[in-house]
Structures are given as C-alpha cells and as structure tokens.
Amino acid sequence: MNRTTRKSAFDSVDAVLLAAGLLVLAVGQYLAFTAPPDVQQHYLIRILYVHVGAAWTAYLAFFVAMIYAVLYLWKQNPAYDRLSAASAEVGLLFMTLTLFGGMMWARPTWGVYWTWEPKLTTSAILTAFYIGYFLLRQAIEDPEFRAKAAAAAAILGVVNIPINYMSVYWWRSIHQTATFDIINRKVHMDTPMVLAMLVNLVAINIIYVLFLRLKGKVAYCAAQKEDWDE
C-alpha cells in the first residue's frame, strides 16, 4: 500500500461526519434524558429513542445496499459491489443493535426478552437473511460471480423490509404499531419525545454514512490486495 492511499483513508469529509455525528448524538441523548417520562412505562421509554433510530437506519442501509446492487448490475463497476456489501454490513450492525435494544425494552414492558410474534419473527428472518448474504459472499471465490450473486441477494433482501414494517398492521402481534404512523399520518407522541427521537435518528443516520464511507474504503484496499495476491 502506498502512502497516498493510506493518507486518504480517513479524509476531511469523514472527520466532519464524525464530529457532526457525535455532536448530534450528544444533543439527541441530552434531549432523550430530559424528555418527560411516559405516563405508562415511565423512564423505560428512553430505549425507544435509540431503538427506533437503529431500526430505521438498518432499513435505510439495506435499501441503499439494494440501490448499489442495481447500479452494479447496470454499470458492472466493482466499486458499486463493494459499497453494496458495505451498506449491508452496516445495516446488519444496526439490525443487531435493534434486536438487542428491543429485547432490553421488551423484558421490563412486555415481560419477556423474546417471543415468536410476527414483528419479531420477521425481524429474525431479516437478520438471518443478511447473515446469509455475507456467508454467500464468502462462499464464492470468483469476484464477478460473487458480485452478481450478492447483488441478486441484496435486491431480494429488501422484500423483507415492508413485510417487517407492516407486520404489526397485517397480523396480531404484541409489538405496538408504529408511533410515527406514516400510513395514517398520525404521531402518537408528545412533542419533546418526538424531538428526542428525531434528533437521535439524524445522529444515527450521520454515523451510518460515515461507517459506509469507511467500510467502502477498507473494501477497496482489500480488493487491491486480492488483485496483487493473484
């Protein structure tokens, strides 16, 4: 690896994203910890402020992975394949955090860490799908075949998202329906809580973009090494 690549690995855009992400996250956390407690579950509601942000960002990351997958199939540029995989990887990270945070929230409110109800079952399928996506990538050695198979998987994976989102409306579940109801255009939440949730959502999205850029660069270096090794 030459010096110029190493120098450009973490550039000024990344630095700005990191600073902005941490700053907005700090503001979001301040708002979350000063927001009033919920009348029913009191301070347990604070898990919501990161749970919703993590879940939405995971959806976004998987959606972006699909867009890069389509771009790859169209333009045949390996960079799009790397970015698609990078977005799926960050998405899997946020999906894992969503599951973990959700379990921490479910135990004191519902009474169990996990139950096989529709929202949770479809979340488990969504998570397993992207674990499978990375096993598929690892299993195929030919870079072009790997990229094409992965692109097909990344496009297919997005089907999980509307099913997961709509599961609380389509089927009987213990998971509450969306507080930010984009279908009926209603918000079932007090303003300070909405604000705390949205600011945290923005912070997590900035961090997602940063992670996507960094992971894309790491993947670029790895691809170069793979070329040299051959």
Binding site: I45, W110, V112, T115
Partner: peptide
C-alpha cells in the same frame, strides 16, 4: 406466562399525576 401489550402512544403524565 403473562405478557403485556402496551400501546404505541407515548405521553408525559398529565398535570396532577
């Protein structure tokens, strides 16, 4: 096993609560 199904609505306690 007893599970609670709470609502999707979140509000601060009203005055006096």
């Amino acid at each position: 096993n007893l599970l609670i199904k709470h609502s999707e609505s979140y509000q601060a306690p009203r005055e006096g609560e």
